[in-house]
């Protein structure tokens, strides 16, 4: 990825920055506090397991590593989608967008499977404070990924309506920012929740 953005085609703002992009960065700043609250709740409760299973009983590191890797790679395809549209190749952009959405969907599928396994092993939302905070934190991350997938599909639809040329690539860039953010949240969750042992 390089810095080779064409100069903004809408420079008529006080700062020369694009409104939508500025709004997205502000929103992401806000999202930091959103996920910060959930992660703090989890950290507070990670040992409050009651009679239910503990994290050491449940977590399957190789499995979660693979789904983390899938999400990480979806960031790469998102970057490729953006550089395609900036180079004027809409067909390639649509392919990369669909690839990103597919990788996101794979991640969600993995999460659904993981949740099902945990429930079978005896951890539900109401088993313990640990269970509540785990499911709600990762569930809200999953909801963010789902919204991201919807936005990717929306971009693909827009593109087939004839929008999103090389002069009009902002929506792709802004959705890309959101998608990468959801990815870095998962980087934090994977490390703090899965890898660092509790006890």
């Amino acid at each position: 990825m390089s810095a080779a953005h064409p100069p903004a085609e809408h420079p008529h703002t006080s700062t020369g920055l694009d409104n939508a992009k500025l709004a997205m960065w502000a929103f992401l700043g806000s999202e930091c506090l959103f996920f910060g609250s959930f992660i703090s709740t989890y950290l507070l409760y990670r040992n409050v397991t009651g009679d239910g299973p503990t994290s050491a009983d449940l977590y399957d590191i190789p499995y979660t590593s693979i789904s983390s890797f899938v999400l990480l790679m979806s960031s790469l395809t998102m970057v490729l989608a953006l550089s395609s549209v900036q180079n004027g190749d809409r067909r390639a952009m649509r392919i990369w967008l669909m690839a990103t959405a597919f990788l996101g969907l794979t991640f969600i599928g993995g999460q659904v499977f993981e949740f099902t396994t945990f429930v079978e092993e005896g951890l539900t939302l109401s088993t313990s404070a640990f269970g509540s905070s785990f499911f709600v934190l990762t569930g809200f991350h999953g909801a963010h990924v789902t919204i991201g997938i919807l936005m990717l599909l929306g971009l693909t639809v827009m593109s087939s309506f004839g929008r999103l040329g090389p002069d009009d690539s902002r929506p792709v860039e802004v959705v890309g920012l959101y998608w990468h953010f959801v990815d870095i949240v998962w980087i934090v969750i994977f490390t703090v929740i899965y890898l660092i042992p509790s006890g």
Partner: peptide, 21 residues
């Protein structure tokens, strides 16, 4: 991936404000 290295400092500041807070 999110180009903060190449983009306006304002974006960095907005995001860093939320993160540090």
């Amino acid at each position: 991936f999110m180009h903060l290295r190449f983009d306006s400092r304002i974006f960095t500041r907005l995001f860093a404000a939320g993160l540090l807070l």
